[in-house]
Amino acid sequence: MRVEQPSAAAPLVVAHGLCKRYGEQWVVDGVDLEVRQGEFFGLLGPNGAGKTTILRMLLGLTPPDGGELQVLGEPIPARAREARTRIGVVPQFDSLDPDFTVRENLVTYASYFGLRGKDLAPRIAELLALANLEGREDTPIAALSGGMKRRLTLVRALVNEPRLVVLDEPTTGLDPQARHHIWQRLRELRDTGTTLIMTTHYMEEAERLCDRLAIIDAGRVLASASPRTLIQAHIEPHVIELLDAPGRAAGEVLAARGAGVRAYRAGDLLLLYTATPGALLEELDAAGHRYLHRPANLEDVFLKLTGHELRD
C-alpha cells in the first residue's frame, strides 16, 4: 500500500480515541490529539497520567487497544518502522550505550538508521558541537555527567535529521543550568522548523517551550490549547497565595464575601483567584498578612481542571 506524504499543512500526528488498558486499568482513555507541522507540542500531566504510554503509542512501541493513529502520514503501529526513520527520540531513561565512547555512540546509533560512510563524519562533528561535547569524543559514557548524557541523548536523536522529535521528560533530574542548555537547544530546533512533542510534569517547562499543549490526567486530555489560551480560558488572571494560618483565615473570609474572588485550598496554601485584586491586596496589607501576588499559570489551570496539584 502506498501511503501519501503529508502536505505542509496537514497535521504530523493525528490520534482519535486512543485507548490502552493494562489489566482492568485504562491508562489511556480516549485520547484525541493533533500536532501540526512546526509546532512545539506538550503533554503536561503528573506522573502516571499516561504521557509516556501515549508517546510509546506514537512510536509504535505500545499497540493501542482502541482508536486510530497516524504519524508522519503513516498508520501506526502498522508502519511504525517507516515513521521512525524520520523521528528522533529522547527517552526518559538513559539508553546511551555504555560499551562505547561518545563518538562511538553516535556512529552506532546512526548505523541503526542505515547511516554510515564518509557523509556521516561531518554530521557527527556537528552534533558533538551542538552538544558542547567537543574534546570528549573518546570519553566513555560512564565518565559523563548527567547533563552531558542528556545533551548527548538529545543530539543522538538528531542523527537522522528528523522531521519530528519526541522527548519524554527531557529535563527531569537535571540541575537548572543543564536544563537551560536543553531548553535553548529545543527552541533552536523549533526555530529551524522541526516539530517537537514533549512530555513533562514541569509546568514552567511547558509554559516556556510549548506552542500548544494538552493537559493530561488519568489517561484523558482535559484541555488542549496554547498555554496562554488555557490560562485565559480557565483561570482569573491574578493569584494571591496566602502563606500562613492567619492569612488563610483572612482569605477564607474575603472569599466568602463573593465579589469575584474564588478560593482554593492546596496543601498548606490558600489560593485566591480574581480579576480585580486591588481591594483584596489593600485589605491584606492593612491586616499585615504574608502573601504572594502572582499572575495565573498552568499549575493553576491544572489544579482547577483536576482538583489536585501537578506535583513538581
Binding site: L59, R84, P91, S95, L96, D97, F113, N160
Partner: peptide, 12 residues
C-alpha cells in the same frame, strides 16, 4: 543496558 530500547527508538 537499554541497548535494545535504543534500537527500538530507531527504525529497528
Amino acid at each position: 543496558q537499554q541497548t535494545w530500547n535504543a534500537m527500538l527508538n530507531a527504525p529497528l
